[in-house]
Amino acid sequence: MSGTTLSYLWLADNKSIKGATGPTYTPVAADRGKKIRVQVSGAKPGYMTMAKTSKEVTVGYGSIASNVPTISGTAKVGSKLTAKPGTWTAGTKLTYQWLTNGKTVSGATTSSFIPGAAQRGTVITVKVTGAKAGYTTVSKTSKATAKVATGTLTAPAPTVSGTAKVNKTLTAKPGTWTAGTKLSYQWYANGKTIAKATKTTLKLTAGHRGQKITVKVTGSKTGYTTAAKVSKATKAVAK
């Protein structure tokens, strides 16, 4: 009726919901499983106030807005991959699980993952699961990466310390390689291999006099391409 003032009261299991006195109400997690009704009262001067109550509806689980995650980074041994979950319902708690060829990688449950030698040649996906009180849990899995390629070692050129002089000892300084890399050494005189000179040090003899010395450092690690670096030459070995 024209001129009637309406007021609203929302109820959950026949109990009034504090503060819920508007024409709309959004159920919260605490309402899940409860029966919701609304009571509408109409008032107008000179008329008897009346109240009507709606039929009840049972609150079910909410639906989380979710996205299929994507993966950024290069699928390569030793290179970090990062999960990009996209936008989910505000307040959703996200968890991660990385998979290789569709199989769970034990312990790989953060938003980033570095493939190791065991993942070389496989494809990587990430599953993102979203949970929020009162909502149905949702899981989404990314598209697979390309096959994980062989890693590239961090391999600096070595240097040689010491004095290039007969009876003096030279020492190879390999620099910092990828953690876990196994290093081997080979010394050269004027570019020719010095027999059995495969340690980190070389004692110069009269046979080296007048020659320039270099050292080659070779690094190897499972899942990575073997790398070799050669130092700059010393001055010609003096007496």
Score class of each variant (00 low, 15 high):
Ala155His: 13
Ser106Met: 07
Lys239Met: 06
Lys44Arg: 14
Thr159His: 08
Leu94Asn: 10
Ile71Pro: 02
Ala131Arg: 14
Val126Ala: 08
Thr145Cys: 07
Gly134Gln: 05
Gly86Val: 07
Ala236Pro: 06
Val237Lys: 13
Leu204Arg: 08
Val105Trp: 02
Pro156Ile: 14
Thr141Lys: 10
Asn67His: 04
Tyr96Ile: 02
Gly73Ala: 06
Ser112Gly: 02
Gln97Pro: 00
Lys147Gln: 11
Lys199Thr: 15
Thr159Trp: 08
Ala20Ile: 06
Ala164Leu: 09
Ile194Asp: 06
Thr141Leu: 08
Ala90His: 05
Thr4Val: 11
Gly180Ile: 14
Thr163Ala: 14
Thr87Gln: 11
Ile64Met: 12
Ser142Tyr: 02
Ser66Tyr: 05
Thr181Cys: 09
Thr136Asn: 08
Gly191Arg: 07
Pro156Phe: 14
Ala179Pro: 05
Met1Arg: 09
Ala30Trp: 00
Ala172Arg: 03
Ala238Ile: 06
Ser72Val: 09
Gly22Thr: 13
Val230Phe: 00
Gly121Lys: 00
Val123Phe: 05
Gly116Phe: 01
Ala12Pro: 15
Ala227Pro: 01
Lys44Asn: 13
Thr4Trp: 12
Lys239Trp: 08
Tyr96Thr: 03
Lys34Asp: 12
Pro115Glu: 02
Thr92Pro: 00
Lys143Trp: 04
Gly207Ile: 00
Gln211Cys: 02
Ser231Trp: 12
Ala20Met: 13
Val148Trp: 09
Ile36Gln: 04
Lys140Trp: 03
Lys203Glu: 08
Lys221Trp: 11
Lys55Thr: 14
Lys140Met: 12
Gln119Cys: 00
Val230Ile: 15
Lys15Thr: 08
Tyr224Ser: 07
Leu153Trp: 05
Ala131Asn: 11
Thr225Pro: 12
Lys103His: 05
Thr87Val: 14
Ser142Phe: 02
Leu99Met: 12
Ser41Tyr: 05
Thr169Pro: 00
Thr21Asp: 06
Ser231Cys: 10
Tyr135Lys: 10
Ala149Trp: 01
Met50Lys: 15
Met48Leu: 08
Val237Thr: 13
Val148Asp: 06
Lys55Gln: 12
Gly3Ile: 03
Val57Asn: 07
Asn67Cys: 02
Ala133Tyr: 01
Thr141Asn: 07
Met1Val: 13
Asn190Ser: 13
Thr95Gly: 08
Thr26Phe: 06
Ser41Asn: 14
Thr82Asn: 01
Gly78Asn: 04
Pro85Gln: 13
Met50Leu: 07
Thr198Ala: 13
Ala197Gln: 13
Thr92His: 07
Lys192His: 02
Gly191Trp: 00
Arg209Gly: 03
Leu204Asn: 10
Lys103Cys: 02
Ala238Tyr: 09
Ala90Asp: 11
Pro69Val: 11
Leu6Gly: 13
Lys84Gly: 04
Lys15Gln: 15
Gly42Thr: 09
Thr176Pro: 01
Val217Gln: 10
Tyr135Asp: 04
Lys199Arg: 04
Thr200Cys: 03
Ala227Leu: 09
Leu6Met: 12
Ile64Glu: 03
Gly60Phe: 00
Ala75Met: 11
Gly102Trp: 02
Thr137Asn: 07
Thr136Met: 15
Ala12Thr: 11
